[in-house]
Each structure stands twice: as C-alpha cells, then as structure tokens.
C-alpha cells in the first residue's frame, strides 16, 4: 500500500471507495467462476484495458510493475503444473491470480487510505457489540501504514551506524536495536495520540 500510489490522477480516484471494493469483490467472484484459460486470458486483458482506459500507458505500465512481485508464485505454480503435466490447470491458476491482484492493485492505487479505512470502519460496525471499536481498528490500520516507512528508515540508520564502526555487514544484528527503537517510537506515537485526545 506504501508504494501503491498512482503516478497519475484518474477518473477512478473520484469513485467512492465502497463501490470500488464491492466491484472488486464481484470481479474476484467472477474470476473463480471462470475455469478455463481462454476466458481468464480475456479477463486479464480486460483489467489491462481498464488500466489503459483510465490512465493511459504510463498508468498501465505502473500497474504492470505492481504485479511483478508475484513472479515467485508464478514460477512455483508453473513448475508444479509442468511436473504434473496439467498445463491448462496451471494457466488457470496463474491467470486468475494475475487478474485478481491487478484489479486489487487498481483499487488500492486509486483509493485514498482514509477512504478505504472509512469503509472498513463501516463494515466493522457490527463488531462494536463484541467490544471492538471500529474507530480503533481504523486508526490501527492508518498507524501501520504510517510507521512502516519510519521503521524501515530507522533500520537503515542503525545499519549505517553499525557500518560506520564495523568492517562486517550488520545483517540480523540490527534486529534488537531496531526492535527497541520501534518500542520507543510506539511510546512517542502514544504520546502524540494522547496529545490529540486519545483513541476512544
């Protein structure tokens, strides 16, 4: 979600988050109804077409980059189905995964986190009866997204501090100081939250 921000502003940015998430759910359901390679290939083309239609080539290229982290899964599924000889079955799994993830990324890229969180807050409202405050849940999500880059940056600085004084690479040795730093950051975040009225 951190790097999943769109480089271009598209018409989809102005659709309500709930509509986009509902459409994504329907789309994923549909993908699971399709069970042969040809319709799934068409579905993948359809996702690519929506990218192109919304934001042009640059946007579509960005979308393609966003599904690249799936390559290990593609590799494993290909090897397995190559081994068992079920090539069509493998193609179905891979195409379905690509079409679903690309569509999910499209929703993420075009939706502000706070809008997404507002939908989650609405959906989680029944959980309030079990004692789980939807607002706290939403706040927790926002904090995770805010603090992942802060913690990565902190790890980099600890690694730098290590390398400045050691010829050996730091590797796992940063974990303990990074954990302590994270706890320290958590204390500061708690203060900042308290300074603005707390989480209740």
């Amino acid at each position: 979600m951190l790097t999943l921000t769109s480089p271009v502003d598209t018409a989809a940015h102005r659709l309500p988050a709930g509509v986009k998430l509902a459409a994504l759910s329907l789309w994923t359901l549909l993908l699971f109804q399709l069970a042969s390679p040809l319709p799934l290939t068409l579905a993948l083309f359809a996702v690519a077409g929506v990218h192109l239609g919304l934001g042009g080539a640059a946007f579509a290229a960005h979308g393609a980059r966003m599904v690249r982290p799936l390559w290990p899964f593609v590799l494993i599924v290909s090897l397995w189905h190559g081994w068992t000889g079920d090539l069509a079955g493998g193609a179905v799994v891979i195409l379905r995964m690509l079409a679903a993830v690309a569509a999910a990324n499209l929703v993420t890229m075009t939706t502000r986190l706070s809008d997404m969180v507002a939908v989650i807050e609405r959906l989680a409202r029944p959980l309030a009866r079990l004692g789980l405050s939807p607002r706290r849940l939403a706040l927790a999500l926002a904090l995770v997204v805010r603090f992942i880059p802060v913690m990565l940056d902190r790890m980099d600085r600890i690694t730098d501090a290590w390398r400045a004084r050691s010829p050996r690479p730091a590797r796992w040795r940063v974990l303990v100081p990074a954990t302590l730093a994270a706890l320290d950051d958590a204390d500061h975040a708690a203060d900042a939250l308290r300074a603005r009225g707390g989480a209740d």
């Binding site: 951190l2 502000r112 986190l113 706070s114 926002a142 904090l143 997204v145 805010r146 802060v150 950051d185 500061h188 975040a189 203060d191 900042a192 939250l193 300074a195 603005r196």
Partner: peptide, 19 residues
C-alpha cells in the same frame, strides 16, 4: 491546549498530510 513536539516524527500519526 495544543503541543508542538520537538521531533515532527514523534507527532505525525497518519500516512498523508490531509489525514
């Protein structure tokens, strides 16, 4: 009362400016 912390990274809680 409002408080401006010394280190902005100890104050900012949200991923985007408007949030």
């Amino acid at each position: 009362l409002g408080i401006l912390f010394q280190n902005p990274d100890h104050q900012i809680l949200f991923p985007t400016v408007e949030e």
